[in-house]
């Protein structure tokens, strides 16, 4: 049956290589497959950009928190419980009317996992890594963000062990929104700097 074929397709060569490694390391007592199950489950369900959105919404509503976040990103993010692997040392950079920040890792694909989760494919792709530093306005335009030349673009190439989170500007017309409602406007891309936070509906 044609329909079933895709589901029952033989594993790819790559899948076979992975299975071989996992099996060999398990047989040698160097790997517990249940630990990998737990890691996959953690990063599929617990760690993602909703964490970063909570940080941003808190900064938008609590000036003291925002001050702490910009002063010591790691500690302020830890207050909300989003520390850990690939977010050990965090720097938060603030977008304003004068400055727009965007983040790249030209050498690999370093990314703040605890606040944004695992990186999307485009962040890891050659065109993004190559062009962000030489043509950030072109990259932003490709993402639909057009900024006037009056706005300084700061590209953060996060090639050492500091990880970067962009604090986007709070959209206009959101004075009445709760922290949770604000967090819903904060997209992953707005915290990488390739988008702005969304305008409220209606």
């Amino acid at each position: 049956m044609a329909h079933d074929h895709a589901h029952n397709a033989p594993p790819s060569e790559t899948a076979m290589r992975v299975k071989a490694l996992e099996t060999l390391l398990t047989e040698k007592g160097l790997l517990d497959p249940a630990a990998i199950d737990a890691l996959v489950e953690t990063y599929e369900t617990k760690i993602g950009p909703r964490n970063g959105a909570k940080v941003v919404a808190r900064a938008w509503t609590d000036p003291d928190y925002k001050a702490r976040l910009l002063e010591d990103g790691s500690a302020a993010i830890a207050e909300l419980g989003f520390s850990g692997v690939q977010g050990e040392d965090m720097i938060v950079v603030e977008n304003t009317d004068e400055v727009h920040n965007m983040v790249v890792c030209t050498l690999c694909s370093c990314y703040p996992w605890p606040t944004l989760g695992l990186p999307p494919i485009w962040f890891k792709s050659a065109p993004y890594r190559a062009r962000s530093v030489i043509d950030p306005r072109g990259v932003l335009a490709e993402f639909g963000v057009e900024l006037s030349d009056d706005v300084e673009i700061r590209v953060w190439d996060s090639n050492a062990e500091l990880r970067y989170l962009v604090l986007p500007q709070r959209p206009a017309g959101t004075d009445e929104l709760s922290e949770d409602e604000l967090a819903a406007l904060v997209t992953r891309d707005s915290m990488i700097g390739t988008a702005l936070a969304e305008a409220p509906a209606g």
Partner: peptide, 17 residues
């Protein structure tokens, strides 16, 4: 997060190794 099951296994093996 992962496009194929093997990607998750590879991801996890970073930690175990």
């Amino acid at each position: 997060r992962f496009h194929e099951e093997w990607e998750g296994r590879v991801f996890g093996m970073f930690f175990t190794n």
